[in-house]
């Protein structure tokens, strides 16, 4: 259900937003790790059986026990191992491309090598300024995201249940939602008294819409039979809302919160790159201005890690309230 909701949300979003959503989708595959693993294991087993038989029947010179051992090893190698291997291959290719200055349409001449990025990262870890950049970004996310959750869930619940409110509010959402965060920057700087507040505003805006829309979606899909059951048990409107509509919408709200977290990072970065003196986005852009190329990649990786970590935290916080949606035996 979550996955479907997520897909739906990403579908009707502009491209830029979709890009930032990618890490989340990866998160999903990580969460569903067990099921995918078991299914790949099944297919592997099938494959190995099939090959085994054909080999055994056609070529008797090949020793089946050796083959079996190979296949057994193959079966044991789970997706983690394959993943590590794949990343290592990627790193080696990156390294080769940079040291041989690969330049065919894509130019690797000025790209730092993986090793220089690693050493730059270690240098930064010893620098307090680096942590200030991270903390400033985290603070902006925390403030903007909290406001977005509060307003987004509230608005979503109201317009999900009230036809009149929906008619009044939905046009605003439809007009403002497709405008990318970057496009807001000039106006935000004009609107807000400080640079800090305009960055927080842009970050807030990014998180707001996915949260509103997922909440509305969740409210709308509340099973009618549950509403009827609550009514016949004596519940009035407010109690139906509290005991039925809200919990029924929670899975959808949770996925909206996770998406909102991803988009708020995206928006924050846009704001930080263009203005500000601190923040991990500023750090990354500043590294480019200072021709300190390894730090660009350090900044990028830290942004990615912080985005994944914060989305993971949102999911972790929501998990206890979604216990009932988990499959059971």
């Amino acid at each position: 259900m979550n996955v479907r909701a997520l897909e739906k949300c990403t579908d009707d979003r502009p491209d830029e937003v979709e890009n930032i959503l990618l890490p989340e989708e990866q998160n999903f595959t990580v969460e569903n790790h067990d099921s995918t693993k078991s299914s790949t294991e099944d297919t592997l087993e099938l494959k190995s059986d099939g090959v085994d038989h054909s080999v055994g029947s056609t070529k008797k010179t090949l020793k089946p026990p050796v083959l079996e051992k190979v296949f057994a090893l193959y079966k044991k190698t789970d997706s983690l191992f394959i993943g590590v291997l794949s990343i290592s291959v990627g790193l080696v290719l990156w390294h080769l491309a940079t040291i041989y200055s690969f330049n065919f349409y894509i130019n690797f001449q000025n790209i730092p090598t993986p090793l220089s990025v690693g050493s730059a990262f270690i240098t930064q870890l010893a620098d307090t300024e680096f942590y200030i950049h991270i903390l400033v970004s985290l603070k902006r996310i925390l403030v903007a995201y909290s406001i977005a959750v509060f307003l987004g869930v509230g608005t979503g619940l109201v317009i999900g249940r009230s036809r009149m409110m929906r008619a009044a509010v939905l046009p605003y959402i439809e007009i403002i939602r497709p405008i990318p965060a970057v496009a807001w920057i000039p106006l935000a700087i004009l609107m807000w008294p400080t640079e800090e507040s305009s960055i927080v505003y842009i970050t807030f805006l990014g998180a707001l819409f996915p949260i509103i829309l997922s909440t509305v979606h969740g409210v709308e899909q509340t099973p009618e039979v549950l509403v009827r059951a609550a009514l016949s048990l004596g519940a009035k409107r407010s109690k139906v809302f509290l005991h039925v509509v809200l919990p029924a919408a929670l899975p959808s709200i949770a996925s909206g919160l996770a998406i909102g977290m991803g988009v708020s990072w995206f928006s924050l970065l846009a704001g930080e790159v263009i203005s500000g003196q601190y923040g991990i986005g500023y750090f990354t852009w500043n590294a480019y201005s200072l021709i300190n190329y390894p730090d660009i990649v350090v900044g990028m990786l830290v942004i990615g890690a912080l985005g994944s970590l914060s989305t993971f935290l949102v999911r972790l916080i929501m998990r206890p309230s979604l216990r009932w949606t988990l499959p059971r035996n």
Partner: peptide
């Protein structure tokens, strides 16, 4: 008036 439905009418949470 107590109502009993065909199915899936318990609050799953």
């Amino acid at each position: 008036r107590g109502m009993v439905f065909q199915q899936h009418s318990l609050f799953p949470w």
